[in-house]
Structures are given as structure tokens and as C-alpha cells.
């Protein structure tokens, strides 16, 4: 296929496995976010794609061609490092034109291209500035411009926005996505921020313990997590242990109508998003519990309910929620289509 294909990539350091048999296909032009907790192997996988780490086993293909043995400097992938790795001895323009200088591109051509790239990242007129005299966001843009200088086949970013404050980070997420769409370049961003992943990605790859747990669109990842790890890592969720059969299931606080288990299965874990749990007066739903804590965040209210020993969180906007107090016994209504039975 055209695009990036990883086949059985494994990487271990001194016998300790960091990436464990990863298979992934990324069509050209896709924006991929690799998401996972620290130590899950996502950065190692990105560095392996860049050619900075040699995989212990497996193959990397670009448009069908095996590039596993191609050294980093011949891959023509642009990469933005978490530290940004701007060259301290070069000014903004020289940093951006560095890859052109390496290829012995003439000075006039270099200046022209640097200007173009600076325009692309909204930094016109900064070419002569020393990198030490830039703000965090500006440094970020310089690093992006430099990585794009050679119109790379693949654009790799390792936690690119982690050093920025929350507001700037959100703005940059949108900007990065727009830039990617404008250039149509295959992009892989490593992040531990699921909001960031949801904002930018066409394809979210959730990693845990060196493996891909799930690779799917953001909505699918959110709505249909394949296991507890993904469900828990993406947004917040209620994990409810249930007993049952093909006829129905019982949770500690009562039955949940409309949910059935696969044939032969007698117990399972249900993942239900807090916004899919509606609080109703006792008697209006078979599942009940006692309110233990209420967190009113203004735009939304989180209600913590103790249902037979399991804590269940429900989120609703103040308009959609009836008045309850701590200590009240309430019914919990769950739509069957919002309950996801997880693979155990």
C-alpha cells in the first residue's frame, strides 16, 4: 500500500522490551497521534521510524519500499524533538536553512526558502534573530519550519507542545492541524495528552506496555474502546463489573436492562462514559445508589454515586440535571447502546 507500514517492529534495550511487535499502516496524508502514558514505548517507536533507533526486529516500509536499513540522514523525514534541538550557534534563518546548507544549496536559494518557511509558520522577519531571544512558542515554530524545510515525506513530532502553557498549546494544536491539512503531509505526533490527540488526529494510536492497544479514529476510540486500558486512558469512564448471561446483566447496585453478554460469558466489565449516565428519582431505573459527593464545576456537575460498593460518576450540565443532594438515593439510567462490554 502507499503510505507508512510498520511490520512487527520490536525494540529492546539490553533485553528490556520497549516496543513489542507493533504492526501499523498509515495511509499518506494521515495525521496520526500516538498516545500513551510515559514509558509506553511511543517515543521509541517514533525514533525507530525516524531511523534514530534500529529495530530489534521487524520492517518499516514507505510506499512499499523497505527502508529499515536506510540511515536517518537519508530518510528525509522531518522531525521535531521534545527539546526542539534548535542549534544554539545559528540564528533563526540559519537554523531553518541548515538542511539546505547540508545539501550544498546556494545561499540565495537558502535565504528564499527560509523566508517561505518563516511565512508558513507566521514568523516573517525573524530570520536574523538569535534563537536564544525567542519565546517558547516562537522556538516551537522555528523547529517546525526547520523540520519542513526539505518538504519531507513524513513529519514526526515528539511531544512538540509539552513545553508550552495550556492556552498556547491549544492554539498550536489547531494551527498544527491546519498546517498539516494545507501541506497534506503524513504526520505522526507523540503525545501523552489525549485532548491534543482528539483535537488533531485522523488516527489515534493508543499504546501501552510497548504494544498498540487500539488504533482508530478519535470518535471510535472514545466511543468504542476495545479494552479497559484504552477506555480509562481516553477521557474518563466508569468501569462496572457485571455478572450475567445472554439474557441480561446485574451490577452491584441492580440490573442494567438491555445489555447482554456474549454466549458462554458469565462476567464482564462495562465501560460507561459519565455523560451517558443519567440520574433519575428512585424507582425510575433498576440500578440505584447513594450520592456520596457532588463537584459543581459551573459548566457541568459531577455526581459521585455509591452503587452497591462501586463508585459511579455521572456528568451533566446543570440544566439537564434535577436537584439532588449528598445522601440522596437515586436511580441510574444507562442507555444500552452507551454501555461497552470490554474484552477482558
Amino acid at each position: 500500500m502507499s503510505g507508512l507500514v510498520l511490520e512487527g517492529i520490536s525494540k529492546s534495550f539490553n533485553g528490556v522490551s520497549a516496543v513489542d511487535h507493533v504492526d501499523l499502516a498509515v495511509p499518506n496524508g494521515t495525521f496520526v497521534c500516538m498516545l500513551g502514558p510515559s514509558g509506553c514505548g511511543k517515543t521509541t517507536l517514533l525514533r525507530t521510524i525516524a531511523g534514530l533507533e534500529e529495530p530489534t526486529s521487524g520492517r518499516i516500509l514507505i510506499d512499499g519500499a523497505d527502508i529499515t536499513a536506510v540511515p536517518a540522514h537519508k530518510r528525509n523525514f522531518g522531525m521535531v524533538f521534545q527539546s526542539l534541538a534548535l542549534f544554539p550557534h545559528l540564528n533563526v534563518g540559519e537554523n531553518i536553512a541548515y538542511p539546505l546548507r547540508i545539501r550544498s544549496v546556494g545561499r540565495a536559494e537558502r535565504v528564499k526558502r527560509a523566508e517561505e518557511l518563516l511565512a508558513l509558520v507566521d514568523l516573517r522577519g525573524y530570520a536574523d534573530r538569535p534563537v536564544a531571544r525567542l519565546s517558547g512558542g516562537q522556538r516551537q515554530r522555528v523547529a517546525i519550519a526547520r523540520a519542513l524545510a526539505l518538504s519531507p515525506k513524513l513529519f514526526l513530532l515528539d511531544e512538540p507542545l509539552s513545553a508550552l502553557d495550556a492556552k498556547l498549546r491549544e492554539a498550536m494544536q489547531v494551527e498544527l492541524r491546519k498546517l498539516q491539512q494545507r501541506l497534506g503531509i503524513t504526520t505522526i505526533v507523540v503525545t501523552h495528552d489525549q485532548r491534543e490527540a482528539m483535537t488533531m488526529a485522523d488516527l489515534v494510536v493508543v499504546m501501552g506496555q510497548g504494544r498498540i492497544q487500539q488504533a482508530a479514529s478519535p470518535v471510535e476510540i472514545y466511543r468504542k474502546p476495545v479494552n479497559a486500558f484504552v477506555a480509562d486512558f481516553i477521557g474518563s469512564t466508569n468501569l462496572i463489573a457485571v455478572q450475567g448471561s445472554g439474557q441480561g446483566v446485574t451490577a452491584p447496585g441492580g440490573t442494567i436492562p438491555g445489555v447482554v453478554l456474549a454466549p458462554g460469558q458469565t462476567s464482564a466489565t462495562l465501560s460507561v462514559r459519565p455523560e451517558d449516565i443519567h440520574l433519575v428519582p428512585v424507582g425510575e431505573a433498576p440500578l440505584t445508589g447513594t450520592i456520596s459527593f457532588i463537584r459543581d464545576l459551573g459548566a457541568s456537575i459531577e455526581t459521585f454515586v455509591d452503587a452497591g460498593g462501586t463508585q459511579i460518576v455521572a456528568v451533566a450540565s446543570p440544566r439537564d440535571r434535577a436537584e439532588f443532594r449528598v445522601g440522596d438515593t437515586v436511580g441510574l439510567r444507562l442507555a444500552p447502546e452507551s454501555c461497552r462490554v470490554l474484552a477482558s
Binding site: N76, G78, F81, A85, I102, R103, A147
Partner: peptide, 26 residues
């Protein structure tokens, strides 16, 4: 910062050239 060398390599510099154009001047 070891990523300076790596950045240089991803930008197309072979190891020796990366050393001479980044580590030495830095």
C-alpha cells in the same frame, strides 16, 4: 543536548558532517 546531533541527522547530515556542523560550532 544529544538531540542536537540527532536533529542534524534527521535533517540530512551524515554523522561526521553532523559532528562538524553542529557539535563543533555549538
Amino acid at each position: 543536548d544529544p538531540t542536537l546531533m540527532e536533529a542534524s541527522r534527521t535533517l540530512g547530515a551524515p554523522p561526521l558532517k553532523a559532528f562538524l556542523t553542529v557539535v563543533v560550532p555549538a
